[in-house]
Design a protein around this nucleic acid. Structure first.
Lengths: 200, 200
DNA sequence: GCCAAAACGGTACGGGCGTACCACACGCTT
DNA sequence: AAGCGTGTGGTACGCCCGTACCGTTTTGGC
């Protein structure tokens, strides 16, 4: 009879390691910041040896880029599903505010950090052209989704309104993050949406 | 006759070094990013020996904080002056858009990077409570200045409108930075302002 | 079962980092 | 003139970094 060894956490192997490493990157970016992403930290967070990071990714740059791409793709899929699965009777504005803008706000415990991650990555994109494609794709998905909903709500310039609304949302969120407080944004967003819809 | 030695750039001495170091920090944050701020780089940018950084500032943390505070104070003074010196006939909305929001946009060559610096610092504040006081003071100054102008333009809820307008501005700017493009924001901001003023 | 290819993982290297240390120069007051 | 505190600056220490290296193990087609 072999001695009882507490089961190791079942290290992922093969391509699953790639995924695990990327997830670790995202966690670190969210919790500590993009600068804190080091090979050693990522490996430890993923429960893998240091060398696995350089085996699956050519460089730290590549590692970061892939992680951002993963985050973007996930969120874009969420947005698409949300807009496409809308039942016909549903109020598009309520859906826009509650589904597209607010869900990141406060309910999930890690949402604050994941928001921080997203904005950090956005700023990174400002400095690294390689990331801009992803950033553009990401924000385009939001704009498009929001515009679809606004159009259903009767906006005559849905796309422009969507851009303004989204920008306002980003700005409000950013300020909240920076101030460390956590207020409810939806009433303000609703007022803004109303104002935009009314004013032709 | 002494040999001709090209005049050294007149190293600052005493407390003037403090100022020079802080300015160097701001330059680096703007041009390369907050993470690139190291004692050695700061010292070199200021034309001073490495040890001067630790002599005038207890730690890197302290150095960064002081630099941010300097940047905030400068900008806050600019805002105050802009709003207070407004001549009576001037259109408050035009002043808001052109003076408070747009001047950072494109005219100065370094404006893109200095914007990046500002937003980087905002995100830093989200992670370091020590910076939140400064971040709050900074954004409060903007809100207050903008609200004053909006009130003069007939807004019945100037403060709320100012917050929304500023948030939208921040969001638009952030997206532009991330996308790497540089479009003209003022028309969109004007439309938003109009919509807010009209709606109740 | 064999073997090449893929995956794995321990280790090392050169470099930049924050910070500490300390010998020295200057400008006061005495 | 002497003494002292503030300011100055060269240097060193220990740490963590990105990345490279290379022997070992696992995997999959024959």
């Amino acid at each position: 009879m072999s001695p009882v060894i507490p089961a190791a956490p079942a290290r992922p192997r093969g391509a699953a390691r790639r995924e695990a490493l990327l997830q670790a990157v995202l966690t670190i970016v969210a919790e500590v910041g993009a600068d804190a992403v080091t090979h050693r930290r990522v490996a430890q967070a993923a429960g893998l040896p240091l060398a696995s990071t350089t085996y699956w990714f050519d460089s730290k740059e590549h590692l970061l880029t892939a992680a951002i791409e993963l985050a973007a793709d996930r969120d874009i899929a969420r947005i698409r599903a949300l807009v496409e699965d809308r039942s016909d009777g549903e109020d598009p504005i309520a859906l826009a505010v509650s589904g597209l803008l607010e869900p990141l706000d406060d309910e999930r415990p890690g949402s604050r950090t994941s928001l921080l991650a997203a904005y950090s990555l956005l700023l990174e994109a400002a400095r690294r052209p390689a990331l801009r494609t992803i950033a553009s794709r990401w924000s385009e998905a939001y704009t498009r989704g929001l515009a679809t909903l606004l159009e259903a709500a009767g906006s005559r310039q849905a796309r422009a309104d969507a851009q303004l609304l989204m920008a306002a949302y980003d700005g409000l969120l950013l300020e909240q993050l920076a101030a460390g407080v956590s207020a409810n944004l939806s009433s303000r967003l609703r007022r803004l949406t109303r104002a935009l819809l009314e004013s032709s």
